[in-house]
Computed example of a mutant assay.
Amino acid sequence: MTVDTRKFEVLRISILSHCNFACVYCAPKEKENSSAKHYQMLSPDLLQRNLKLLIAHIKIKEVHLTGGEPTLHKDLIQLIQIVKQNSIQEIALTSNGNFKTGLLEDMLAAGLTRINFSLDSISQSAFERLSDRNISVSHVLNQIESAKRLGFNVKINTTVLRGFNDREVLDLLTWSGERNIPIRFLEFMKMGPLHKEHPIYFYSAEEIQEQIKSIYQVRNYPTPEDSTAQYFITNEGFIFGMIANHTEPFCSSCNRLRMDSQGRIYGCLSDETSFALPETDDEIQFTLEQAMLTKKKEFTGSELSMKYIGG
């Protein structure tokens, strides 16, 4: 019998449940049931309460703010400040990049250290098709470059879908590599509205790598032990990662605890079970143990959209 040695070290928080994009793999309009979920925003008071309760029981080395689109939260700067005040050294945020000018500087001053930009296309037509929005991709690209110039630790996340952006892998790698920004290619996860259609759109990490190796010479690049990505580097110095949650699952090393915009916690992306955080120490420890028990040995997916549970 093997002993499960996993522990919670990274807290991913979906600070609100809505987004200004309607990406095909997350919230396509024809699949969204508006009556199923009401928009929720995590309040600063609830974040402060839950952080203090959790920090007393687990050593959190990183808090990652997600959504929905976290830059839509009216109290975003205050939330970042609260995390910083609780002595969390690594504070990250995942964004689609469609936010107002000046917010980058405000987030940096508040204590944010890293931004992961979701960027699935640099082609205007494909960008509009994937996001279902008439938004200039140039604006998003400019925000990514601005974040890099300001000194943020910047990464790009690209979810690859067959028939949508699978022919853009090389363009995206070249664009990010020329700007010294690591890019991570994600296998489309069996989550949310397209849960049942997953096989139609799935494009494997192996197929992505085959494209890259057809043009570039590639070798392994140092990868952190708890990373969800396996990193590589081309001879040109372009760094890219592969997040192959389906074909090369990494569940056995998962150290993530998730919190939704109502303050409830989840132990696993593949399990919709959530828990309210109680007040007493004994109850909190038991709740965390129950959340850990929901973690799967391999990724099985869920019909719950990731925007509700911190991605």
Results as ranks from 00 to 15, higher is better:
residue 3 V to D: 03
residue 4 D to F: 02
residue 13 I to S: 00
residue 14 S to N: 08
residue 16 L to W: 04
residue 17 S to P: 04
residue 18 H to D: 15
residue 18 H to R: 13
residue 19 C to N: 04
residue 23 C to A: 14
residue 25 Y to H: 14
residue 30 E to M: 00
residue 31 K to E: 02
residue 32 E to I: 15
residue 32 E to H: 03
residue 33 N to H: 03
residue 33 N to A: 09
residue 34 S to I: 12
residue 36 A to V: 04
residue 38 H to G: 12
residue 39 Y to N: 12
residue 42 L to M: 09
residue 45 D to I: 10
residue 45 D to L: 06
residue 51 L to E: 03
residue 54 L to R: 13
residue 56 A to R: 14
residue 58 I to E: 06
residue 60 I to P: 06
residue 61 K to T: 13
residue 63 V to I: 12
residue 66 T to P: 05
residue 69 E to D: 04
residue 69 E to C: 02
residue 70 P to Q: 08
residue 71 T to R: 07
residue 71 T to Q: 11
residue 72 L to F: 05
residue 75 D to Q: 14
residue 75 D to C: 02
residue 77 I to K: 09
residue 77 I to V: 14
residue 78 Q to S: 15
residue 79 L to V: 07
residue 80 I to N: 06
residue 81 Q to D: 15
residue 83 V to D: 02
residue 83 V to H: 00
residue 85 Q to S: 15
residue 87 S to F: 11
residue 92 A to R: 14
residue 100 K to V: 13
residue 101 T to W: 09
residue 105 E to T: 15
residue 106 D to L: 11
residue 111 G to S: 10
residue 111 G to E: 06
residue 115 I to Y: 08
residue 115 I to Q: 01
residue 115 I to S: 06
residue 121 S to M: 06
residue 125 S to M: 02
residue 130 L to A: 09
residue 136 S to T: 07
residue 137 V to G: 03
residue 139 H to Q: 13
residue 140 V to R: 04
residue 140 V to A: 09
residue 140 V to P: 06
residue 142 N to L: 07
residue 142 N to E: 15
residue 143 Q to M: 12
residue 144 I to E: 04
residue 150 L to C: 09
residue 153 N to I: 12
residue 155 K to Q: 13
residue 156 I to Y: 04
residue 159 T to S: 10
residue 159 T to Y: 01
residue 161 L to G: 01
residue 161 L to R: 03
residue 164 F to N: 07
residue 165 N to H: 04
residue 171 D to P: 00
residue 172 L to Y: 01
residue 183 I to D: 07
residue 186 L to T: 05
residue 188 F to Y: 04
residue 189 M to W: 00
residue 192 G to P: 09
residue 193 P to H: 12
residue 193 P to E: 12
residue 195 H to D: 06
residue 200 I to M: 14
residue 204 S to V: 00
residue 209 Q to S: 10
residue 211 Q to D: 10
residue 211 Q to A: 12
residue 212 I to R: 08
residue 212 I to E: 04
residue 217 Q to W: 07
residue 222 P to I: 05
residue 222 P to Y: 09
residue 222 P to F: 02
residue 227 S to A: 14
residue 227 S to W: 09
residue 228 T to A: 11
residue 229 A to R: 08
residue 229 A to T: 02
residue 231 Y to E: 11
residue 231 Y to I: 06
residue 232 F to W: 08
residue 234 T to R: 01
residue 237 G to C: 00
residue 238 F to Y: 15
residue 239 I to H: 01
residue 239 I to M: 06
residue 243 I to A: 00
residue 245 N to W: 00
residue 245 N to K: 04
residue 247 T to W: 11
residue 247 T to V: 10
residue 249 P to C: 10
residue 251 C to L: 05
residue 253 S to H: 15
residue 253 S to A: 14
residue 255 N to Y: 11
residue 258 R to Q: 04
residue 266 Y to I: 01
residue 267 G to K: 10
residue 267 G to C: 13
residue 268 C to V: 07
residue 269 L to K: 13
residue 271 D to P: 02
residue 273 T to A: 13
residue 277 L to M: 03
residue 277 L to S: 10
residue 277 L to D: 03
residue 279 E to V: 07
residue 282 D to S: 13
residue 285 Q to R: 09
residue 286 F to P: 00
residue 287 T to D: 01
residue 290 Q to I: 05
residue 290 Q to S: 06
residue 290 Q to T: 01
residue 291 A to W: 00
residue 291 A to S: 00
residue 294 T to D: 02
residue 296 K to P: 01
residue 302 S to M: 06
residue 309 I to T: 11
residue 310 G to L: 14
